[in-house]
């Protein structure tokens, strides 16, 4: 008996077999082996390195952490692959956002796919952090845990420039700003405010403004709501598969798969900037962010990331 060759020999590697890459793998980040270029996003500063010139709302996105997913009740949970995951954390301040970014450039045009295994959590309560009585916490019934409603939103997005600059954005809004459960996918209808717009006096945002699109009225839901697996308490980590396809040839979204649901994104608009930006030719950045809507730290964990392209 003979065995047919595997259709994609790359996937014989167990670390890759959990992904579905396009033809060219650009990035495979297993966070048990380091941060792989994921770093804190910061706004721009002047020629003196004067940090007072950084936009307030882009000055404190927090350093990513290599986390063993360690909790007060069970100790080390560990990641999906190996011990460490990349953790992006907010401060315990309503509206605060943590952001980690991966910086690449494009050597072609076409479909680009971002895959990850992720988990999201609100911080467990302690006497010091006061999470048990913070806004958003619901009633504990031994199934649903108050902390689930203290998780705001996580976002996966791009910053791309091919002469025209634009951002593809997908956000999972777990709860809205009034802590009501939403479990919905959203996109912004406007491009992100930039440091240059601030420099030119067009925008000035507060420290906890939503940097992706500060006005809640500029966000729209797409596709149907989707329940994920928070798993009852803030100390159980279940990894979710996320696969997001964009097309840089048409500056558009294609589709978003999260676990067993595929959301068609072909009609989800990608608002471009009207103005041209220098110094950014072929920019291809991906960022992930986590945003809390209450005074409780929110965390986004990535086990690993794979970015592939069809060029």
């Amino acid at each position: 008996m003979t065995t047919a060759p595997h259709p994609d020999p790359r996937l014989l590697d167990p670390k890759l077999a959990k992904f579905s890459p396009l033809r060219r793998i650009l990035v495979h980040d297993d966070f048990t082996t380091g941060t792989h270029g994921w770093t804190e996003l910061i706004g721009n500063h002047d020629q003196h390195g004067d940090l007072d010139t950084v936009d307030a709302h882009m000055s404190d996105f927090r350093p990513p952490q290599l986390s063993s997913c360690t909790f007060f009740d069970v100790g080390t949970h560990g990641a999906m692959s190996g011990t460490y995951a990349l953790k992006v954390a907010t401060r315990p301040v309503a509206g605060h956002t943590g952001v980690a970014i991966r910086r690449l450039t494009m050597s072609g045009r076409g479909r680009v796919q971002f895959e990850t295994y992720l988990a999201y959590k609100a911080e467990a309560a302690s006497a010091e952090n006061g999470a048990a009585t913070a806004a958003g916490g619901g009633r504990w019934d031994a199934n649903n845990h108050p902390s689930e409603q203290q998780f705001g939103a996580f976002t996966v997005a791009t910053d791309i420039c091919d002469g025209v600059r634009y951002h593809n954005v997908v956000r999972y809004q777990n709860t809205d700003l009034d802590h009501r459960v939403r479990h919905r996918w959203m996109y912004p209808t406007v491009p992100e405010p930039t440091p240059r717009e601030h420099f030119e006096g067009k925008v000035r945002l507060a420290r906890t403004a939503d940097f992706t699109a500060p006005d809640p009225a500029d966000w729209r839901q797409f596709s149907a709501p989707q329940d994920l697996c928070f798993n009852e308490v803030p100390t159980k980590v279940n990894w979710h598969y996320l696969r997001w396809v964009i097309d840089t040839a048409t500056r558009s979204n294609v589709e978003l798969q999260v676990n067993d649901v595929v959301h068609d994104m072909s009609d989800v608009p990608v608002p471009p900037y009207d103005e041209e930006y220098g110094s950014l030719q072929n920019l291809l950045n991906f960022y992930v962010s986590v945003r809390t809507h209450t005074d409780v730290r929110n965390f986004l964990y990535l086990d690993s990331v794979l970015i592939s392209a069809d060029w």
Binding site: I42, D52, V54, S59, R62, S67, T70
Partner: peptide, 16 residues
């Protein structure tokens, strides 16, 4: 980063 500290403070937890 560029933080003005006064009185008592603690920094954010960091996993290492």
């Amino acid at each position: 980063r560029n933080a003005t500290l006064a009185g008592e403070f603690t920094t954010e937890p960091y996993e290492a």
